[in-house]
Computed example of a mutant assay.
Amino acid sequence: MSMSEMMTQMADKGGFIAALDQSGGSTPGALKLYGIPESAYSNEEEMFALMHEMRARIITAPCFSGDKVIGAILFERTMDGEIQGVPTPRYLWRERGVVPFVKIDKGLEAENDGVRLMKPMPGLDDLLARAAGLGVFGTKERSVIRLPSETGIAAIVRQQFEVGEQVRKHGLVPILEPEVLIDSPDKKKAEQMLHDAIAAEIEKLPSDARIMLKLTIPEVAGLYDNLARDERIVRVVALSGGYPLDDACERLSHNRLMIASFSRALIGDLRHEMDEKQFDDTLAIAVNKIYKASVDKV
Rank of each mutant, 00 (worst) to 15 (best):
S2G: 04
S4A: 14
M7V: 01
D12S: 15
K13S: 12
G14S: 09
G15F: 02
I17W: 02
I17M: 10
L20P: 00
L20I: 03
D21W: 00
Q22V: 04
Q22Y: 02
S23N: 13
G25K: 08
T27R: 07
G29E: 03
G29P: 03
A30D: 02
K32T: 13
G35H: 09
Y41Q: 06
M47L: 06
M47K: 14
M47I: 07
I58F: 11
I58Q: 05
P62G: 03
C63W: 08
S65E: 10
K68E: 04
I70Q: 08
R77E: 13
G81W: 02
E82R: 12
I83D: 00
V86A: 00
W93K: 09
E95D: 14
V99A: 00
P100Q: 03
I104R: 02
I104V: 13
D105Q: 03
K106F: 07
G107C: 09
E111N: 05
G114M: 05
G114T: 02
V115G: 05
L124G: 04
D126S: 15
D126P: 03
D126I: 12
L127D: 12
R130P: 05
A131F: 04
G133H: 11
G135H: 06
V136L: 07
F137E: 01
K140Q: 02
E141N: 13
V144M: 14
I145T: 07
R146T: 13
P148L: 06
P148V: 00
T151K: 15
G152T: 04
G152V: 03
I153T: 12
I153Q: 05
V163D: 02
V163A: 04
E165D: 15
Q166V: 12
V167M: 01
H170Q: 06
L172P: 00
V173Q: 07
P174T: 03
P174G: 01
L176W: 02
L181H: 09
I182H: 07
I182F: 00
S184N: 08
S184C: 08
K188A: 15
A190P: 08
M193Y: 14
H195R: 14
A197N: 05
A197Q: 14
A200G: 11
E203G: 14
D208C: 07
R210N: 04
L213Q: 08
L215A: 06
P218H: 10
V220S: 12
G222H: 02
L223T: 09
Y224G: 00
D225C: 06
L227E: 09
A228C: 05
A228D: 01
R229T: 14
V236D: 01
A238E: 09
Y243S: 13
D247R: 12
C249R: 06
H254Q: 15
N255S: 08
M258Q: 10
M258G: 07
F262K: 12
S263M: 11
R271K: 15
E273G: 11
M274E: 04
D275M: 08
F279N: 03
T282R: 12
L283F: 08
A286N: 10
K289L: 08
I290P: 01
S294E: 10
S294H: 05
K297G: 01
